[in-house]
Design a protein around this nucleic acid. Structure first.
Lengths: 231, 231
DNA sequence: AGAGGTTCCTGTCGAACTGACAAAAAGTTA
DNA sequence: TAACTTTTTGTCAGTTCGACAGGAACCTCT
């Protein structure tokens, strides 16, 4: 059996984006409505194929981030690979999922290309009965879990905030992502105790009511010592 | 400019394996000597292309694990994606790296196919001056760091041990992977305090000398509470 | 101006945890 | 039997953590 010189298979490579942000003290993820046929009309994660054979994977993720969400300069990190053979009816598609964190209050969509993007509370889209294209439900679950875990040991929470923020705003990030209530006094002590996590900038006044809060910005350290422990 | 209907590029998908184990109280990684031309003769991680278009990625990793290392039934988890455009001179190759943990004392190689596999101390191969094919140095660094981090919060350390083991054997795992010395008495207390981490089986005698140690096996819990803290 | 309300910030206190070290227990070797 | 090695059980002081009290600073309403 003189089989021809074996050639490895060629597959399609895509990137998908789990973009998280905070809106109204709830964790939201950016979803688009699919316009083309596999899962047409269903909500899906922003993403797409590599533009050409020489495009870097992270560059493709940043390109989709700008094209489909109008975002740039946000936190972006690889999340995982999703390549189960039957996940895409069009053929063998392997997707490299990325996790992006957007600061609060980015304009509702501001999409340049796909205007069909919208922020959706993760609780709603992960509730039983909600439908998502492909295996994007699993990808969102993994992305949220990654964010929850990294909030404990890294300064990722500052990526949810604007350049300067108050400690209670930072606390809202932890409460929304973890889905718990935290004691403001203990939170204050712990955040201040983690060296290099946040540094003071100046005082401000809160628009509503109450004592004005000090303003902070993200510090130089990305690994928290001691870590923030989840209840 | 009626450009033809755009077609996404097709790329080659590979799997690479970082297989870690303990030998003589040192952390080792399995390396093969490349027999074909890109980086011929240089040490490299075991791995290869997808067998066909329908092979699952994790299945490909397990296949390479058996073919190139003669291992089966060991811990295996995805590590990350390495797809930088210039990393393989043959073309656009995207590799899905996996991390595998082998119990101590698997027979030196026992390779069925590639007999050129050998265990190498990670300290040696990561020392400046050592040469590795492709970007495999970076992959090994990431794999070791993943193992170090997971030892803190999960029961991954038991994957380095045989089915039953003593507490001091478990301590050797932590010391080798973290590269530190630990107090046996505090380690004993901490391991016992993590509920569900290890469960007792029966007493044994140590071959050399000293008081016989109790035998344990891996418990049902994979998330350690409280975690093992790295000094 | 003062009362009341809200939020921010500083403390306090007991329980739990950690790292450093002592010492007994149970074997092997000389 | 003495010496040695390794495992196992404690002890103890310093630190951290969760729960809670209370003062400080601002707003709004009367």
């Amino acid at each position: 059996m003189p089989d021809d010189p074996w050639q490895p298979p060629r597959i399609l490579l895509a990137v998908d984006l789990v973009i998280l942000t905070l809106r109204a003290a709830r964790l939201h993820v950016l979803l688009v409505n699919r316009g083309i046929d596999p899962f047409r009309g269903a909500p899906a994660l922003p993403g797409g194929f590599l533009a050409d054979e020489h495009e870097d994977i992270e560059a493709a993720a940043r390109r989709e981030l700008a094209e489909e969400a109008g975002l740039s300069g946000v936190h972006l990190e690889p999340l995982g690979v999703y390549g189960e053979p039957g996940r895409d009816p069009r053929g063998r598609v392997v997707s490299v999922a990325h996790l992006a964190i957007a600061p609060r209050l980015p304009e509702p969509v501001a999409g340049t290309d796909a205007v069909h993007a919208s922020w959706t509370p993760v609780d709603d889209i992960l509730a039983p009965g909600a439908e998502l294209a492909f295996d994007h439900r699993r990808i969102i679950v993994d992305g949220v879990e990654r964010a929850r875990a990294k909030l404990e040991h890294t300064a990722l929470a500052t990526a949810f905030c604007a350049e300067s923020f108050t400690i209670s705003e930072l606390q809202q990030v932890y409460e929304a992502v973890w889905g718990v209530r935290l004691d403001p006094r203990n939170f204050y002590r712990k955040v201040q105790g983690a060296r290099g996590f946040i540094v003071a900038v100046g005082p401000m006044r809160k628009p509503s009511n109450g004592r004005p809060a000090r303003l902070f910005k993200a510090g130089p350290v990305h690994v928290l010592t001691p870590p923030m422990t989840r209840p």
